[in-house]
Every structure is written in C-alpha cells, then in structure tokens.
Design a protein around this nucleic acid. Structure first.
Lengths: 253, 253
DNA sequence: TAATGTGAAGTTTTTCACAGCG
DNA sequence: CGCTGTGAAAAACTTCACATTA
C-alpha cells in the first residue's frame, strides 16, 4: 500500500496552526463559563489558568486570530466568545449523525454538550432491525439501510462512528460516499478515507495505555530495586502538592 | 480547591518522546492483528500502513526502544508485541475504577477492549444510592462513600472519571487523595491535580469543534473554487488520521 | 539485496522576554 | 503601570536520505 502523499511544503502564512485550533475549544469553554458568571473581561493569565495552559501560549494562539485584547486590561469575554465561535464555525448549525447505537452510541446521543454548541443530533442509525423506531435520547433510531438517504435529507457533513471495530470501515465508506467529510471515530480501528475527509479518533484503550506507560515509570522510580510494582499504587498518599507557579518541574535524571 | 498544577509533565520519560509513546498503542494494535493471523514478520512499510503512519516515523519510533528489527527482513511480530507491551507496562495487571455509572460509565464498563490488554475493571462507583448493588457489565456498582476504601483495597492507581462536569473535580480530588496517580477524564472540565499525577482527557465536544473548524474551511474553499470536495470524495486514498494535511487556506480576512 | 537504523535537515510548536500601547 | 502582542530562541517532532548490515 504505497501511500502516495502529495505533501506540498506549503508555507502557510494565513492558516491557524493545528495545535492552536485544538486549543480553541478549551478557551471557548473557559470563556463561556466566565460569560455565564457575567465576568466582563479576563487577562491572559486568568484565562490560561482556567483553560489549563500557560499564558504565553494563549496569547500566541490568540495572535493568530487577530488583536482582540486591550493592553493593560485583558480580553472582552463576550467579544472573544464570539470571535472564537466564529473561527471554529460554531455560529452555524452542524447536523450530526451517530452510527451504532450500542452503549456508547446511546451515551453520546444523551450527551448534553453535544447539542449545546452548534451541533445537533440529526439522526441515530443502527444495523439492528430490532432497534429501529426505538427512541434513544428522544430520537427514534433508524435502520442503516437508509443511511444514504438520511445523510442527504439532513445535509449531514459530520458523522460519528460508534460501531464495533469490524463494522467501522464499511460504515465509514458509506458515510463518505453519501457526502460526509468529517468523521469522529470511536471504534478502535484505523479508518481509511479519501483525501479531503477528516478523521479524528477517540480511543479509550489508547489513552489507558499511555497512562499505563507513565504509571509504570512512576512505579519504577519509586521502587528502584525490586519488582514491587503495586507498592507504588498503595504508597502515595496525598500526592506532593508543590507550590504553584508555571515553572515546569524538571526532574533530575 | 485550588489544588495545584494542571499541566502535562513535558518531562520526557526515559528518553522516549511523548509523541512516540502516544503511537505505541497504535503499533501494538496493528501487531496484535498480525499476530492473530500468524504473520511471523512485518516490514516497517507494511506495519506503518496498518497503523496509519509513515514508515520513517515508525522506524524512528522503534529506534527509541532499541534495535528490534532485522535488516533486509523486518520485525518479528511476536517479539515486537512483547517489547512494546513491556514498554507500555502492559505485562502487568492494572486495576481500574470507573466513577460515574451513567450512560457513558456503563458504556465504558461494557467496553471489551478495556479488559483485553492489561486493564481490569476493579470497581464501578456511583453517587446515586439507587445504583448501589446493581450490576453493570456483571460488576456491582458501589456507592461513592466507599471510594477511598475501594481504591486502597484494590491497589488502584488508574481512575476513570465519567461523572457530570460539576462533580469531576471533587471526585478527582478524592481519587488522588486515595492514591490514584493517573486519571482518564471524560467530563468536560479541566481538572486540577498535584504534580506527579497524570491526567488525560477525552472530550467529544472538543473533537467535534475541531472537525467543525476544518469543515467550515472546506465549505469556504468549495464555494471559492467549485466542487473540489466531490472529486476528493470520489477517489480512495490513504488513511490520514488526526490533523488534516495542508490546505491552501484562502480565508477572506 | 532489501530493509533497518539514524544523523542531519526541515517543520511545527512552545517558550522567552520585552517593546509598545492603553 | 499592567498586560497584550510578537519577534526571536529553544525545544519537540517529522521527514529525508543513505550508510549499514543480516
């Protein structure tokens, strides 16, 4: 499988860095919380703390969007909420379909944050005929035979795959063929898609494995000699809560 | 409640870059599939394709683990499965607790991939007394009053938070105080934890917003230069997961 | 010969530190 | 003065290209 990539060494000057895009939702959430508390302005320092990043990074991120702050004061919360929403494309409505209404699919359908900001669950789709018509989160499940029609009728461009791994690629192919160009994949599989289609994956198992790696490292540090791995878990009472500050603690080797 | 630091420890762990660690589970999954098909060896090119990355990156990643390949041949599948498993700390058993047994928590408890590799659901915990004793995925739910005891009795060091956002920080604090040092957070909140505690977050809403950003960009381009997306959707390409490639990006400023 | 392993080059992301503005 | 906005430096990550070796 030769991956015939056409990577142009693009010198993008007007594009927002991907790393920044990935943080905008974080800022937006923090800003929304401030907005709800009727906080009028916020400094980069405060907002950064609320979003869990450092302030230099936040300011740099915002600099890609434009100059929306006021020196000596900070950022206008409402204005920034609007600017980021617009940048993320959340000022419009995105109909979404969820395919695979098992435990996870149902959880996603019920997830409130879904609807809250620009996203609307347009349809729930499952391959099990027994599910058809059954309402989940107030939305009747439709059979996957009608997938293409559902996509087209609702003008869906974002699909969520919550099927078993074995079905994911086939579902993905049908979604893409029907016009979906962004996919959020919860199935533990690498999806193959044409250029121009975005795939993001959410994978519980991978996240746990990454945690396990770091966990193991901690254990190894604590019990340097013998193989008592569980000792680390049992030990460690209330963890060392260092004084605050944004200084990255560098562990000596 | 101002517990302490929140940032990811950029501390490189025993020389293996964080980005590499994040890909090891991907390789491991692809290798496991090969192993099940009794494939004895695999080249970096083949394995990279299966994992959805390019081969140079894969080889570089493996070079941090050691020299486990054979020039002119490739990698021994079984051996590599073992080495990566060991590196990730999956040769031992990790008891995990899930806190918050709503739709999502139940879905996680039922998730097969959980148990499959090193992770064992040691307990399910919920704040609702009505849930107590009720079995989910064959495991009786326990009340959160007993959280500390459960953590300690089971030597749990990894906790999964699937509670509503409002409860997440409090649950997190209790988990950490009880000895948990790694947290997988599904609640849409930034958790504050002491140094030495790892937090990874899985956030549906953020992923969707990132997709919306790219989707919006595609729409803008299509309008500017006719049906480019159609052509792209028609032909099958390679898996390009994560951030999208380079798009010319001509946004009216 | 075929494919690994890796210095070096290239790119992206983060951090620093301070000029400049309200 | 306080805080933003941003060049510049540093760090992290990716890709290239090829010497090396089974």
């Amino acid at each position: 499988m030769a991956t015939g990539r056409t990577h142009r060494p693009a010198t993008r000057s007007r594009g927002i860095p991907e790393a920044t895009v990935a943080r905008l939702p974080l800022y937006l959430r923090a800003l929304t919380a401030l907005s709800e508390r009727s906080v009028p302005t916020v400094s980069s320092e405060e907002l950064a703390a609320a979003a869990g990043v450092n302030s230099a990074k936040l300011r740099k991120d915002f600099s890609y969007l434009g100059s929306y702050g006021t020196r000596g004061v900070g950022y206008d919360v409402e204005y920034l909420v609007y600017q980021i929403s617009r940048e993320l494309g959340l000022t419009q409505d995105w109909p979404v379909v969820i395919v695979g209404i098992g435990n996870l699919g149902a959880a996603l359908a019920n997830y409130g944050g879904f609807a809250s900001r620009g996203f609307r669950v347009a349809a729930l789709i499952d391959a099990d005929p027994a599910m058809a018509g059954k309402p989940v989160a107030g939305i009747p499940v439709q059979h996957s035979d009608d997938l293409e029609r559902i996509i087209q009728d609702n003008g869906v461009s974002i699909g969520v795959i919550a099927t078993p791994a074995g079905a994911a690629q086939a579902v993905c192919d049908r979604l893409v063929a029907a016009g979906v160009t962004s996919i959020l994949n919860f199935a533990p599989t690498v999806l193959s898609v044409p250029d121009g289609v975005d795939v993001r994956k959410v994978d519980l198992s991978i996240e746990l494995q990454i945690l396990a790696f770091h966990e193991q490292r901690k254990a190894g540090e604590e019990a340097a000699s013998d193989g008592g791995v569980q000792a680390a878990a049992a030990r460690r009472g209330s963890a060392d809560q260092g004084p605050d500050g944004d200084v990255p603690a560098v562990m000596p080797a």
